[in-house]
Amino acid sequence: MSDTTTTAVTGRINGREQTLQIDNADLLLDVLRDLGLRGAKPSCEMEVCGACTVQLDGLPVSACTTLAAEIDGRDVETIEHLDADGTLHPVQEAFLRHSALQCGFCTPGMVMTAKALLEQDPDPSREDVVHWLEGSICRCTGYATIIDAVLDAAEVMRRAR
């Protein structure tokens, strides 16, 4: 195995199994964006800003610092999958209700981070939300509306359960 600098991988991207020949040096973010999934954004490139956040097996990761080959046998979910059935995810709805965005460049990463949190912990405290979002930078909003939106989404999702 591995005589070359590429690797054949089979993973699920947004629910659909795909087999790709991956250049080992490819980062997950570049491959996703080349596939047309451009919701995840490059920004800091150093795992601190969160703009490139996608879920890998349910947990948020920095796609800018994850090898694309990591999708082998795993499940990647990007922002594009959230309304694949035509309806927005409750986190997205809450972001709209709270006007929790301005330029929108951090928004897909924020939404994916928040969604992952609510999957792990359906009833987070405000402090829990702040703690999870600590690694996601927004330069426009001052965060308060984002935190409110996540707490609101949590409540909506709990009620729907």
Partner: peptide, 12 residues
């Protein structure tokens, strides 16, 4: 461990 870096770094 809950306070190492950020959630994405902790996940990986």
């Amino acid at each position: 461990e809950r306070h190492v870096a950020n959630i994405r770094v902790r996940a990986a």
